[in-house]
Amino acid sequence: MKLNLVEIPRVKSISKEDFYKNYVKKQKPLVIEELTADWPAFYKWKLEYIKEIAGDKIVPLYDDRPVSHKDGFNEAHAQMKMSDYINLLQKEPTNYRIFLYNLMKEVPILRDDFKWPDIGLKLIKQLPMLFFGGTNAKVFIHYDIDYSNILHFHFHGEKQCVLFGPDQTPYLYKVPHSLISREDIDYDNPDFEKFPALKQAQGFVCNLKHGEMLYMPEGYWHYMKYITPGFSMSLRAYPMRISSLFKAGYNLLIMRHFDVMMRKWKGQAWINYKNEKAITDTHRKVKI
Rank of each mutant, 00 (worst) to 15 (best):
M1C: 10
L3G: 09
L3C: 09
N4W: 10
N4F: 13
V6S: 13
I8L: 07
I8C: 08
S15E: 13
K16N: 13
L30H: 04
L35C: 01
T36D: 08
D38I: 14
A41N: 04
E48R: 02
Y49D: 00
I50A: 01
E52Y: 03
A54N: 03
A54W: 00
D56V: 04
L61G: 00
H69R: 09
F73S: 09
M80C: 03
Q90V: 07
T94N: 06
N102K: 06
L103N: 02
K105F: 00
D112S: 10
P117R: 09
G120V: 11
L127M: 13
F132Q: 00
H152S: 08
G157W: 07
E158P: 01
K159F: 02
F164A: 07
D167M: 08
K174L: 13
S178Y: 04
R182F: 05
E183W: 03
K194H: 11
Q202G: 15
N207D: 15
Y215L: 12
P217H: 05
G230D: 01
F231S: 02
S232K: 04
M233N: 08
M233L: 12
A237K: 09
R241N: 15
L245N: 14
K247S: 10
N251I: 07
L252S: 13
V260K: 09
K266W: 05
G267Q: 06
W270S: 10
I271K: 02
